[in-house]
């Protein structure tokens, strides 16, 4: 009788353990597996990137596709970002009688944080998903296998060039977006005021320091690298046919955007350490 009772009470416990294992342990395990595979891809990138022959033609083509083709979207977003930030900030600053600080405040916000992060998120959406979908489509239609069996190195041709192009192009796009955003801010300031172009930028550059510009620039290199790596990782390891292509594109955007926020958090902590 007592044995039966013990068995009966053990069964629900087993079920709870099984439930926890299925629901949480497997997810945690799969997360760490993904991180390990991504780390392996990054290490392989560095190992392959420095070994000749180099794929310069493909790198330039990818830089054009990733950078130049993303410019209109980044430019429009940057302009609206500067304009809206200025319009939204004006009333608060006016309440404190600090309206004259508007150009400087907007400039610091754009250069230090909003410009790099918003541009990186737009970049993750456009470029990350594009790389993920393109490579996944090549993977499921056996185009990558075809390159491999013809004695080529598809990793070098497809992955290294895309990661490198994303790493080089995002900082350039962020500089362009910041400049256009500041122009948007200038327009925003002049909607309810009369500040000359010269005076506006005098105030902007008078307030900006090396510690505003340099860390912001450096972190965009890491953002670009993360977007490229995650897009390539998701695409290059896609499976499950057409469904896998959609999944890869979707996962590339989600994880790349998340990576941008995580890297930004780390960058802010490091910058504040050096600032203090």
């Amino acid at each position: 009788m007592s044995t039966d009772l013990k068995t009966a009470s053990a069964k629900p416990l087993e079920k709870v353990i099984e439930h926890i294992e299925n629901r949480y342990i497997k997810n945690i395990k799969s997360f760490f597996e993904e991180v390990t595979l991504l780390t392996r891809l990054i290490l392989r990138f560095f190992k392959t990137a420095v070994k000749p022959p180099f794929e310069f033609a493909e790198l330039i083509k990818q830089a054009y596709l990733i950078g130049y083709k993303s410019f209109p979207l980044v430019a429009i977003t940057g302009f609206i970002m500067g304009l809206v930030l200025t319009i939204q900030s004006r009333p608060t600053l006016a309440d404190f009688g600090a309206e004259s600080w508007l150009p400087a405040m907007v400039a610091v916000s754009i250069i230090r944080e909003i410009g790099p992060v918003i541009t990186a998120l737009i970049f993750a959406g456009k470029v990350g998903s594009g790389i993920g979908a393109e490579l996944a489509s090549m993977k499921v239609t056996e185009q990558i296998d075809a390159m491999e069996v013809s004695g080529m190195n598809p990793f070098k041709y497809l992955v290294v060039t895309r990661i490198a192009a994303a790493t080089f192009m995002l900082p350039i796009l962020v500089i362009a977006a910041d400049a256009i955003s500041l122009y948007g801010a200038y327009i925003g300031v002049n909607l309810k005021g009369d500040v000359s172009f010269h005076l506006f930028f005098l105030q902007v550059f008078g307030k900006l320091t090396f510690s505003d510009v340099f860390p912001a620039f450096i972190k965009t290199i890491f953002f670009g690298f993360a977007v490229g790596s995650i897009g390539c990782y998701k695409g290059y390891n896609a499976s499950k046919g057409t469904e896998g292509v959609g999944e890869a594109a979707n996962a590339a955007v989600v994880f790349a955007s998340l990576a941008v926020f995580v890297l930004d958090m780390i960058a802010v902590q490091l910058t504040s350490l050096f600032d203090s």
Binding site: E142, Q143, D145, A146, V149, S150
Partner: peptide
């Protein structure tokens, strides 16, 4: 890779780029 150049592979879907 050198050895693979001596082998041709025609995929089921042709796998054209």
């Amino acid at each position: 890779n050198a050895l693979r150049k001596k082998v041709g592979f025609l995929f089921q879907s042709a796998a054209l780029y």
